[in-house]
Design a protein around this nucleic acid. Structure first.
Lengths: 226, 226
DNA sequence: ATTATTGAGATTGATGACAATATTGTAATG
DNA sequence: CATTACAATATTGTCATCAATCTCAATAAT
């Protein structure tokens, strides 16, 4: 048995008591999304426990959280693996995002305050000068800022989960400069529609934005797999 | 400390190894949905472990599963409680169901085989002569049968989760005979539209059905809370 | 040569014990 | 009498260990 990476790349010493599982899940999620944990990789509990310097229990709980996000698959008595990515899965995620996010935006727009739109715009500014690694997170936060006023906790949690799933695909393709440029344009249009409180246009923008993103990623993935 | 119900009301001896958590979750879900576990009730791990005759670990995993379904809320270091029910939550569930289920049906209809429609019709037959306790489960299965051909695992899992959440409200109101009668009519209309592979009509039926259901339940809950 | 079997090793699922945190009841003080 | 500080209790989070299951290679049989 070789030494492994014996210790924690964990950023902030794994939080307090009761937050270890969440911290481990966050770190693993980051790595899976970033692609450093490739699909199909086996996630041994003992191995992860050793790496993070904790027992197997918090690791198990962390894995459960990732299963809920669809980033990890779990066969009873057989262990956990990073889920495969596929065109079908990508398509499904984007279909669901479209349904969930257009619903959230529709409800949120009448409640949206100017300061919240400002906040979204500031995030978009950051996004346009961000590096690969930060793109996914900032992008999610941009969208979430616009949806938050809808005051629907279940729906927002669902959207977050889909965002995590989508980020896996996004990160592999965001290197394509044109994808980012196109995305930025669409975000700006969406912001304008929100400022006007123009529900119809805003939802049309969002729908197009998500469709287009899904298609771009799909093409990229297809090319990469071939 | 009083003896509690020392042992398992569990139906099928709690399955084999690795299925205990799922079995416990299923039993708790049943009780929460049926209303015998009232909202706000504290779910002590030790207590549940004692009651089911197992250790606390499978109980913890079961609680996690219920959290994912939104039936249980979990504060770190403070424990689990049955989530409150509310008009806002009911509304949110039905909004999400509408978005998710109309998407699933839209994709499924072109793939729907006659035998699958027959299966759904058979379930509807059962549903019309079912008792309160079976209503929720059969109702979910009826809907799921129509969606299954869409071949979208994430989406179907999401719909299942929403169904569980909706059943909590459904069970309190299904006693109203007129709700069931109305629901049956709508199911029949939906089946006709599916047989014709008439996507537009089918989705309109489904949307109306879900909206109407949500409104009926909302009125009932409002009345009951007052 | 191919397939079935079986046994060792590895890994997961579950248990009971310990440490940290929250809750509650009591007493002291204004 | 109300309020706050503190101690006792209860409950959760984690750990270390045991038991059951799976993997996989080596062996034997057809």
């Amino acid at each position: 048995m070789r030494p492994e990476r014996v210790l924690e790349s964990a950023p902030a010493k794994l939080g307090q008591r009761g937050a270890q599982a969440a911290a481990i899940a966050a770190e693993l999620r980051r790595e899976i999304i970033a692609g450093s944990m490739e699909p199909g990789v086996r996630l041994g509990q003992e191995q992860l426990a050793h790496r993070f310097g904790v027992s197997r229990m918090p690791v198990r709980e962390a894995l459960k959280l990732l299963v809920a996000d669809g980033l990890v698959a779990f066969d009873p008595n057989k262990g956990a693996r990073v889920t495969q990515i596929s065109l079908e899965d990508l398509r499904e995620i984007y279909e669901m995002r479209m349904a969930a996010e257009s619903l959230a935006l529709k409800i949120a727009i009448p409640e949206l305050s100017n300061s919240q739109i400002d906040k979204a715009e500031a995030l978009q500014d950051q996004l346009e000068s961000a590096t690969f690694g930060d793109f996914g997170g900032l992008n999610s936060r941009f969208h979430r800022t616009l949806y938050e006023p809808c005051d629907r906790p279940r729906l927002l949690a669902h959207i977050d989960s889909l965002s995590s799933a989508a980020d896996r695909y996004l990160c592999t393709a965001v290197a394509q400069a044109n994808h980012a440029v196109q995305s930025h344009k669409e975000h700006r249009s969406l912001l304008v529609a929100c400022r006007n409180r123009d529900e119809e246009t805003a939802i049309a923008c969002l729908t197009d934005h998500i469709i287009r993103g899904g298609e771009t990623l799909g093409r990229y993935l297809e090319k990469q797999q071939a």
